[in-house]
Amino acid sequence: MKKNWWKFLGAALVFYSVIAGLLNPVPRLDILNESIRNLYFHVPMWFSMIAMLTASFVMSIIYLGNQKKKFDIRATEFTYTGMMLGLFGILTGMIWAQFTWGFFWTNDPKLNGVAIGMLIYAGYYILRQAIEDHEKRARVSAVFNIFAYPIFVVLIFVLPRINDSLHPGNGGNPGFSKYDLDDGMRMVFYPAVLGWILIGTWIATLRTRIKKLELHEELEDE
């Protein structure tokens, strides 16, 4: 139980963000209206995805250093969990965009960047499926991951800031802090981000443990 405190912390933080996110007062803004509350749910998906992919990136580097199988498994499961969170981010973003920008998909550089980024990580998944040999698969996909991560960061953090973007903090738009994230919102937003990162880590570690069990059985069968 002692080792699991962070799982409960994550659950408690997100639980708090669900309740406070709906009940706490928010700035009254045109166009956004009540949908500003999506910030507590849509944006943490992206933050936690980045956290998962960063963890995966680190695991891949460690794997290339010591060639221990468990780091390959961790890297993979963190990537898959990150992709799941990213998919939630895209879907929730599309709903939000339809009702504030008028379209499910705009040619916003952030949207297209993220779409390309997700395709790169889909390539990671396909690459792993394609290589039979365990060690070769682990090594090639670790290298792929180490290259994919910086490209992904450029695609979603750098390019949208250079081009025009509808997202806050990009393309000359003021960032969160300027007008759409007052102190009251911060009190919900940051706990939500931390909570989702912890829950994402929980899911990723669960997947890692299951994968290890599967591999264990495979070895016994041989």
């Binding site: 699991n4 799982k7 659950a11 997100v14 639980f15 669900v18 309740i19 709906l22 009940l23 829950i199 929980w202 899911i203 669960l206 443990r209 299951i210 069990l213």
Partner: peptide
């Protein structure tokens, strides 16, 4: 609305805890 969302979220967490225990047992 808050009650509905809270119920779903608690349900999901209980599900995750249950899954965690099953994995632990297998380990």
């Amino acid at each position: 609305v808050v009650a509905v969302l809270a119920t779903i979220f608690i349900g999901l967490i209980v599900f995750l805890i249950y899954l965690d225990r099953r994995v632990k047992k297998l380990e």
